[in-house]
């Protein structure tokens, strides 16, 4: 549900980075935070455990500029990927205007990707968010690892609705901004159509 403030002339949208634990969701946000102009970003908020695993969520507010007199703001959230934080993930998905699924390309994480996708769709359904119409992108992360599965196999298993697929190595920034651009464009395009997701 994008928030449109006519008094302040602002549009704010919420994007959620979803995916299995240790897949690189927080790394995506950290890279965006590092490489974005100071004027265009807010503070990166991370609620993490002592071992730097996401406990509740990470949040990065971005000011992307102005469209037709309206300031465009995006709030990027990650969910905690570990299985036992399911309740937290459900809370964070609420009100999402777009979702990036960050898949871990390693063969050993194949089942975790599938489980996380199932989990995502279940939470979207719980919040009456229609998966076929929500802006959505699939990022295949960790493409540099020798244990990464072939791209085609991952796409066959994880691509659910002909969404854009971006190959990434988030720790090096590869594919990070491409993913962000893809999801921002889809989200604003959805807003343009005035279609309720």
């Amino acid at each position: 549900m994008p928030f449109i403030n006519y008094a302040q002339r602002e549009i704010t949208c919420k994007i959620v980075y979803y995916g299995p634990g240790l897949g690189g969701k927080t790394t995506n946000l950290q890279w965006i935070h590092q490489k974005t102009n100071p004027d265009a970003k807010g503070k990166l908020v991370s609620l993490a455990t002592e071992s730097e695993r996401t406990l509740f969520f990470d949040l990065l507010p971005l000011n992307l500029g102005t469209i037709r007199g309206f300031k465009v703001r995006f709030q990027l959230y990650t969910v905690p990927g570990q299985i036992f934080y399911e309740a937290s993930r459900k809370l964070i998905v609420k009100g999402a205007d777009g979702v990036c699924f960050v898949a871990d390309s390693q063969a050993a994480r194949y089942d975790a990707n599938l489980e996380s996708l199932k989990d995502l769709r279940s939470h979207l359904r719980a919040h009456s968010i229609d998966f076929p119409s929500i802006p959505y992108a699939l990022q295949l992360n960790k493409r540099d690892l020798p244990t990464a599965m072939p791209k085609d196999q991952l796409i066959a298993a994880l691509r659910l609705k002909n969404e854009p697929v971006i190959e990434a190595v988030a720790v090096q920034g590869i594919g990070v901004f491409e993913t962000l651009k893809v999801i921002v464009k889809q989200t604003l395009a959805q807003l343009r159509t005035g279609a309720a997701v």
């Binding site: 469209i67 037709r68 921002v184």
Partner: peptide
Amino acid sequence: LPEITDEDIDSLFGDSF
């Protein structure tokens, strides 16, 4: 809400990143 064009959306990615 003003009409948002593809050009408007593309222009957002000019200076921030």
